[in-house]
Every structure is written in C-alpha cells, then in structure tokens.
Design a protein around this nucleic acid. Sequence first.
DNA 1: AAATATTTTTAGCTATATCTAAATTAATTT
DNA 2: AAATTAATTTAGATATAGCTAAAAATATTT
Lengths: 220, 220
Amino acid sequence: MVLTTAEENYLKAIYHLSDGGTKSVSTNDVAAEMKTKPASVSDMLRKLGDKEVIEYRKYYGVNITEEGKKRALNTIRKHRLWEVFLVDKLQFAWDEVHEVAEELEHIQSPLLIQRLDEFLNYPKFDPHGDPIPDEFGDVKARPRLALNEMEIDSSGQIVAVKDSSAAFLKYLDKVGAYIGARIKILDKVEFDGSMEILVDQKKTLFMSKDVAANILAIQS
Amino acid sequence: MVLTTAEENYLKAIYHLSDGGTKSVSTNDVAAEMKTKPASVSDMLRKLGDKEVIEYRKYYGVNITEEGKKRALNTIRKHRLWEVFLVDKLQFAWDEVHEVAEELEHIQSPLLIQRLDEFLNYPKFDPHGDPIPDEFGDVKARPRLALNEMEIDSSGQIVAVKDSSAAFLKYLDKVGAYIGARIKILDKVEFDGSMEILVDQKKTLFMSKDVAANILAIQS
DNA sequence: AAATATTTTTAGCTATATCTAAATTAATTT
DNA sequence: AAATTAATTTAGATATAGCTAAAAATATTT
C-alpha cells in the first residue's frame, strides 16, 4: 500500500503526538500540529484508517498500528539522514535544514537511502542529536545530561533546555549557548557549582549551576 | 509565479520537444512525451499559457517564452546536478539515476542547489555527457566525436550511437561498449581504419571503422 | 470545393487534499 | 438528568491533474 506525501506527513505527526505510538491522539491535536482544520483531519484519518496504518474510531481519536509505526519511522529515518547530509556535506546551518529535509524525506527510492546512509558513514544521530532509526525501525537512545552533570574536559552538544521560558531562551541566545552549539566543560567551581564552558571551540562562557542545570547536552 | 511539479514536468518536455525553444510543439507530441492523453495536455497548456511560460494559440501548438525557457533550464540544471551527485557520490550506475533525479529536481531550495553545485565542484556535464546549465541558464556545448575521429591515446566516454538498430545495440552490449563506458583509443590501423580501444581501463576491444563511426563519444 | 481524416478542444467525470458551515456526538456543568 | 459547551464529523465547496467520449477546428484527399 502506497502512501501519498500528505498521508506520510499526517502519519509522522501522529507518531510524534502519540509519543511513538504509546498513547492515542485527538483530531484537534493533529489539526493543530498539521496547521489544518479538524474537518480536513477527519477526512484524512478515515483514509489512514482504510490503509490500516492507524486504528480509527470516530469521535475517539486514533492509535497508530504496528505497520503505521514502521512507516512513520522510515520517514523519520529519511528526514534525519537528509539533515545529516545537509549539515555535514553541504554546510547548512542547523536551523536551515528542517524545511528542505521535509521535502527530501518523500523521495521514493530505498536504494538512495541505503547509499546515502553508507555515504554518511551510518550516522546514529541527526544534527539535533535526535536518533536515526535503522532500516528495521530500531532507534538508539542517547542519554541527555544537564551541563552541571558533565565532567571537566568532556565535550558534547547542546540539544535541549529544561526551562523554555522566553527569558531563559533570550539569555541563551545572548550568550551564544544556542541549541546545537558544541561545548566543552573547561572548569567547575566546587564552591557554588558554577561552570566555565567553551562554546564552538572559540568562546568561553561562565554560568551559574542553576543555568547549567537547565541546559541539556548529548556527550560525544 | 510558482509552478507545480506537473507544470514543471510539462514545461521541461516542451523545452526538449521544441529543441530549446526554437520550434513550436503540438498537443499530440506533448501527450506522447508525457504519456498522457491529448485532452489532459489541452488543459495543461491553458494553465501554462495563463502563467506566461508558453505562448498558446488554440489548435496551433505552443511556443515556449523566455521566462519558460529560464524555468525549464533551471529544472534541467537541478536534474543534472542530482545525477552527478548520484553517480559521483553515491555510486549509482548510469542507468539508475534518471527516475530518482526526476523526483529530486522538484525540491524547492535555491540554497540547496547552490551548495550542491559547490559540493560537486561545479560540474559542467552530467554523467550522460549532457551539459549542465549554469544559474543564469547558460550552457556549455561539448562536441561529440565519432570514435574513428579520435586521436590515438585520447580518452573519453561513450555518450550516444548514430545507428540505434537492435542489431547494433546488441553487438555493443555484447562487447561491453555500453553508453557511458570510459574509453581510450589505443591504436588505429592505417590500412582499413579499424581500431583498438580500451574500455573501462580493463578490456581491450577491436572494431571496424564502420562500427567506430557509429559510436559517439565526448572527449575528456 | 466538398468529403474525409486527423488533430485538438470541450464537457463532464474521478480522485486527492483542502476549506467553511452545519450537524452530530461526547463531555462538562448546573 | 437536563442544559450547555466542546470536539468531531458530514455535507458541499474549490483547486489540481488526470480520464473518456463527443464536438469542433484544421489539414488532406479526391
């Protein structure tokens, strides 16, 4: 059964909203995520239900099926491999890749993806630190640490924040500790837990333990 | 004015059928090329006429406009750059690239194409020897020579045949002188014009002047 | 120049993916 | 338990891109 581009996008959204298929998802939530109207979603859910990639009970939301999960993971795999390509090979910036990858992920060619994976040397994580499912849909989780839990001299990349208030994000932006920044722990002060951190191999940053505890990184 | 994928494909077909915009093209010819029905073509020509990429006079065929030519050349540029990528970087074979490139050419991102061009080191020709238009639509023509016109010790790649009869193609297939083969002229016999040719750096081939005259190559 | 053949267009239909507005069902208050 | 609110679905549009069958225009014969 072949899915259209629109169907693939809906399925991916449902997969994400359902936390990888662990909970059911409402029509309104899908509409919000896809930036369409609930009426359009109802139509699409009927189609996806007919194709047996979701289980659809009218008025009671949807659950993704095993087949649907497999399809969604394959789309995610393609998306993330293309993101690696764009950043590693074409020098795209971190925040420039998403839209293009959104188009590239729908190219239909298993050989292309196999060869791309090989060309990129079988990456396990995309530039955002998100895991790339393998061809069977298996994903390697990678633990995220708060900066204050990292050892002196260890390196990594900022992938998320615990506190996503405007004030905190603004502060991070100002000091250059953006999502995606490569970091190295230079020093930790015993007394108050404050830290000295090297950002992108060029800029040294001082931050309180409080701030460090709210920044999540992957270790490399 | 944005063109849909279908519109881009029609425009490209019209560009090719019109020999780069030098002659007008009939509805039936477009239908044959696109493998659709003339009725569908009439609809599409009206749309393309409205978008001013072709000049459309009912019952009298179409001519491509300057704007249309620019658009078609850009699509061709993208197609051929992706073909280079697939062959040079992902080890696709020569005859495996067309369908995938047909999808990739519709990805909308000028930055992507600019970076891809750079990554591929600004290639001027695709793996079939066809020229890649630059960002302004300018193309470098490259002369094609019959093998018997090539000098001893010169190298190149087979790009076309003059005689495309089944018998001739079957013969070429059998001896390994396929379209795309890299060749080197090892010797030419003065007496009868027959030639000795190295194919893909490993196989030596003897052929009559008659055969050589029917194989076209690009010199490298 | 009329008849015939060919080409092209139009009319009306199908399918996908969207929308708005109205109707229906489920959930929450009172 | 009835009334109200919220969520969801259905009905009826629109736009794209295709189709068949019929009509119309052009081209070719006789």
